[in-house]
């Protein structure tokens, strides 16, 4: 009886809230005639992430109209898109990549917020390190009321776990440029992981010219040093330079019997690295789609949402390298991998 009374009191208390929230929802509800307006700015055309985003919303059957603007890898075009967005006042702006996001959303605690989107809700995707780039405070909370986003970087723990599953490596080598902040931060993260994940980190840095650019032609030498010091694999976590010189980098490593594992799947798919754990951009786009749905249709304040990451990753293995180095993947990894260069 007591429970019954308690339940009815609860119900009475809840009623106004339920009524209020439905009223609030009606205020901002979208329909076929009045769809939610999404303004999307991309860096290099509507590629996989952009398509994944659209596809997700189409499958959900939501009344949404997406307008896409392409910067075509030109930073100078972005400011025009920013002005367009500010005059259109869409329900949500989606930004693709670090450059676009920085230009459109602007930095955290910037002294000139009016220059950017201001109080127009914004959602970023395909930003490798949004915290490092100064767009958000942390992955738990953006720290900005109108900003949210999705992560696409696979955590280092997952990369190391895969390397250990595949190669059972105890010594992992890295080669990086001290001029690249993200590489330095990434190396620090690896050093921190080394004791808990039971591996030893062997570090090599590039000699730099006076502009801070690595001097060319030193990769092979550094690889030899790594091999001599007993490294069993070279890992590229975050280094634009290594990604750029990927063919030279991976060939030099393989020449010294060192497999390359990388966070950049392009080093596996378009070069000669052995292993990469990465997210398909298509799936990142879908994740961004679900985040957009929360903001537009579930009345969530963007700043209250966490920045989610994918729970499943894709494993890329370059079989040509595996055969060359005679480093064959364990069957459990092989089964779920996306194999490159399958044909012998």
């Amino acid at each position: 009886m007591r429970a019954l009374i308690k339940a009815s009191i609860q119900l009475l208390c809840l009623l106004p809230i339920v009524w209020f929230s439905t009223a609030a929802a009606q205020e901002k509800s979208f329909s076929e005639q009045n769809p939610a307006k999404v303004f999307m700015v991309v860096w290099r055309g509507c590629e996989e992430a952009c398509q994944g985003f659209k596809q997700y919303l189409t499958e959900q059957n939501l009344p949404i109209k997406v307008t896409v603007r392409d910067a075509a890898k030109d930073k100078n075009r972005i400011s025009a898109f920013l002005q367009e967005a500010k005059s259109l006042k869409p329900d949500l702006v989606v930004t693709w990549g670090t450059s676009v996001s920085k230009e459109m959303i602007g930095p955290l605690n910037g002294n000139n917020p009016e220059r950017y989107l201001g109080n127009i809700p914004a959602l970023f995707m395909v930003v490798a390190d949004p915290v490092g780039a100064g767009i958000v405070e942390s992955y738990e909370r953006s720290g900005r009321e109108y900003v949210t986003g999705v992560r696409n970087r696979v955590p280092e723990e997952v990369q190391i776990r895969a390397i250990k599953d595949y190669l059972d490596a105890k010594k992992i080598g890295v080669i990086y440029s001290t001029a690249e902040l993200n590489s330095v931060l990434n190396t620090q993260k690896l050093e921190q992981l080394a004791p808990e994940m039971d591996f030893e980190l062997v570090k090599k840095t590039y000699r730099l010219d006076d502009k801070g650019k690595p001097l060319p032609g030193q990769v092979s030498q550094l690889m030899r040093e790594l091999a001599d010091e007993g490294a069993e694999v070279v890992y590229v976590g975050s280094s634009s330079y290594n990604r750029q010189i990927r063919d030279e980098f991976t060939s030099a490593a393989n020449d010294h019997g060192l497999p390359v594992a990388s966070a950049y799947e392009v080093m596996v798919t378009k070069s000669n690295a052995l292993l990469s754990i990465a997210n398909h951009y298509y799936n990142v786009g879908r994740l961004a789609g679900s985040q957009a749905k929360k903001v537009l249709f579930n009345q969530q304040v963007p700043g209250n949402l966490s920045i989610p990451s994918m729970s499943r990753y894709s494993v890329f293995i370059n079989m040509a390298v595996a055969r060359q180095l005679e480093l064959y993947p364990p069957i459990q990894l092989l089964r779920f991998s996306e194999l490159v260069n399958k044909e012998r």
């Binding site: 055969r323 993947p329 069957i331 089964r335």
Partner: peptide, 21 residues
Amino acid sequence: DTTLAVDVGVPFHKIKGMDTY
């Protein structure tokens, strides 16, 4: 799975982790 491994070039007698699998 075995066929896949062998077809992509893993020698039949050298498939790692097969017993555990």
